[in-house]
Amino acid sequence: MSQSTKSYFLPGPSFWPLIASISLFLLAGGFSMSLNKIAMGTPLMVAGGIALAYLLFGWFKEVIEESVSKHYNKQVDKSFRWGMGFFIFSEVMFFFGFFGALFYARNVSLPWLADAHGLTGAHAVWQNFSAAWPTAGPSLKLEGAMKPWGLPAINTLLLLTSGVTLTWAHWGLMKNKRNQIIIGLALTIALGAAFMYLQYTEYAEAAFTIKSGIYGATFYMLTGFHGLHVTMGTIMLAIILFRVLKGHFDSHDHFGFEAVAWYWHFVDVVWLFLFIFVYWL
């Protein structure tokens, strides 16, 4: 792999795509089986998970090695920027689907559900259902919906602060201030971990579950996927901290750092929407 940096780096043949294919096949096939109570499913899923972890570790290791040995020119760097930008856009659309579901349920379908069209008694589909949010629907009971101004407000503060510390670390990187980078990143990781701990506490104390009708479903689905993204973001930040310690970045060439920072800010912004639409309004 001795591409000169003048022209665009084109990698040689690679086994990673096949590993990706196998790992997702094991995960999907195994999950289908375990959902349908076939004993083989779980071991297959575990195998798929291991393959996926091996894939992510190995493929990123290869890319980092190529980056560190300066195979990537400016044009490649730009490709990475476009790629990361569109990846985040696709993530935005993923959350958009769930927010859309929440919006539709609250503003369109619940009022319909509550409209009995003049039917009473045995003719009615539901007895005495009114569409006040939060609700678990006409045949389930909802206990203890979330209040915004407790843990969620603290979590908002934690994530917003983590955005600031991350930017501060980035400034340090651009000015080659090693301590500032390390302290900034470490603080960000700590704030992310604190967020996840509080989120875990909130889940553990909640009186309702994902089975508690449309409120429980939208609440856990949205906060759950967000939590998953925070977890991934924190792991990515930890890897970046590790790479900083190894001296992989300099003040000009550090897209790995920036990509993770973009991702982290995206996760922040999603949280703000969650705070407003899931907890508050």
């Binding site: 349920a105 609700t135 045949s139 389930l140 449309i214 479903a217």
Partner: peptide, 8 residues
């Protein structure tokens, strides 16, 4: 997607 739980 289940009206019993307030979905549609």
């Amino acid at each position: 997607f289940n009206a019993a739980g307030g979905g549609d």
